[in-house]
Design a protein around this nucleic acid. Structure first.
Lengths: 321, 321
DNA sequence: CGTCAGATTGTTATCGTTAACATAACGAAG
DNA sequence: CTTCGTTATGTTAACGATAACAATCTGACG
């Protein structure tokens, strides 16, 4: 490359920066050679130099096929791109082991920081130790109590509480909760909000109405179908996220004509075509892209650890068909 | 780091490889120091050495918030992770300029290759020149005619043709097409399949029934509403992708009671809750995760440029409510 | 006890880039 | 015609890791 233009590598380096003292003519010659050879600076070598950073940010999410996380990643990228930074993406599929591998790899690639939607589980020492080694870490969507790391989460408890109160006000007492899971922050908080609302209204939570440990949409659907076949099945359901809601929704559709007239549902997370629902749906909606933006901004700010809470909005689906 | 264990950097390097001749005792000491300091190898420096690669693969998609691309990325990651490779993700939002920036950045980071869902547009010289500079490139979902680069696409033409024939067999003649766009491979091919089916059945395509240049769901919805208000509006619609379909769907819902009894739609791409549709929907479905896997495998294979075509499946939505 | 093979560890040079320093070229001032 | 400042360019060293080579150390054997 330097040969091509007949100059030293240093001159090439200077020609590619705007500040260097280079004759207009030499610069032209270098840039011409650059174009001809399709040369581009080796960023890895650059980042090796002291003072330079890789301008890479590692991002892990638990399920990139969930459009919420897609929106989240767009928000992250939007902000980071404005600062000349790139995203390395990893999908953990809720596996802590994979999360740990990914973060170790990020560290090896000298990322400036990491934005992590923590995978399900209760062992979070690797996150703490990453932060200790100077990697800036921001948790998103799910925080970890007792871990001194910045995070941005939703008003999970309040949103769940308010939505549950709405169900109760509509006269429901037998309310199912789908999606409790130990080790998943949002599941725990949302369940807590639900349980608090029930308790505040003197309604006991029946254990058999609380569904956990089910993952895919199909699995939820089958589980709820099973529940419907039992006597005194719930007259309403609270789903802790959009995936669970879809399972409940499909099970309810199957049974549509045997369900009580006032059958209703809560979906934490909005979903497309909610207006087609034959049952009233109380939707706890929020803006995942904004969460991505916030997480990225928090990562770029060099301040102290902090926790931010984004608002949720409760609305009722309006049937349009 | 080397200091900590009281050995040279070379011994550290050897201790971290399994092949090196290192005393068990020294190795222990090094690994202990590694754990204590949370040391991890600088992959950027490693990749600088001759023969080594970065094990990074660049991936650009046009809209990561579309769950189809989310699934696609999961498929890519699934295969690449098995080969110890990581994904750098970029979202182009259909901007060729951004695509070019991203690819240049990928090149600078010495990626082993790139998987690209090309952004809308007709200038593809940068893709060709990347490939010429030795970067392995695989196009996905959209190919580029006349560009000698590997690609994996759907049976766009055939799927569109077959679905259109189904509409015609149901008696439709005034069929709208939503989502034509110059410079988007899938849009062009799907329109071609649609137009061919119409032509083969002697039905002219009315220009005012062909909707292009509309992007978001809301915009499509409004445009279709406008079309409904005109006389002799379409009795069926073909949507070139899931986003367009959602717009058409919502517009149709608004008008539900004024539409003909046999009103029907084609959606290229599956969508959740299709079973709730009050109108019959012919769905051209496919497996985006499989496309991701295929693209990744093609990238890893070092063979010649080739084009693979993945099948699509046509099914009718079954109304369940 | 001396010699040599094999095992273990250290040293040097390199990858591509660039800050810091060194050199060269040239015109202006004395 | 010196001498000096300015500008343009080259050279060296360093970032972290590691092949290739060099050095050292161990113990077996004659």
């Amino acid at each position: 490359m330097a040969l091509k233009a007949g100059v030293s590598t240093m001159t090439v380096s200077r020609a590619l920066h705007d500040n260097g003292n280079v004759t207009e003519e030499t610069k032209e010659r270098v840039l011409a050679a650059v174009r001809e050879l399709g040369y581009s600076r080796n960023e890895n070598a650059r980042s090796l130099r002291p003072g330079h950073s890789s301008n890479l940010i590692g991002v892990t999410v638990t399920d990139i096929s969930n459009p919420y996380y897609g929106e989240f990643v767009i928000g992250v990228e939007e902000v980071l791109a404005q600062h000349g930074k790139r995203v390395i993406l990893g999908n953990t599929s809720e596996s802590q082991e994979r999360e740990e591998q990914l973060l170790a790899d990020f560290a090896g690639r000298q990322v400036d920081g990491a934005i992590v939607v923590p995978a399900a589980g209760t062992e979070h020492t690797h996150l703490r130790s990453m932060a200790d080694r100077g990697m800036r870490v921001v948790l998103a969507s799910r925080s970890i109590d007792g871990l001194d790391v910045s995070s941005v989460v939703l008003a999970d408890f309040q949103g769940a509480y308010d939505a549950t109160v709405e169900l109760i006000r509509s006269g429901h007492e037998r309310i199912g909760f789908v999606g409790w899971a130990e080790g998943i922050y949002t599941a725990v908080k949302r369940y807590a909000g639900f349980a608090q609302a029930m308790s505040d209204h003197g309604i006991p939570v029946e254990e058999r109405y609380v569904i956990d440990r089910v993952q895919g949409v199909e699995e939820v659907e089958k589980t709820i179908q099973g529940l419907f076949e039992q006597p005194k099945s719930p007259t309403a359901f609270f789903s802790a996220n959009n995936r669970h809601h879809m399972g409940v929704f499909r099970a309810a559709l199957q049974r549509r004509h045997e369900l009580p007239d006032n059958f209703a549902m809560v979906s934490f997370d909005d979903f497309e075509l909610s207006s087609l629902s034959p049952f009233p749906v109380i939707i706890v909606s929020h803006d995942p892209r904004e969460m991505g933006r916030t997480a990225a901004e928090m990562l770029l700010e060099s301040g102290r650890e902090e926790q931010r809470v984004l608002p949720v909005h409760i609305r009722r689906s309006v049937r349009r068909v």
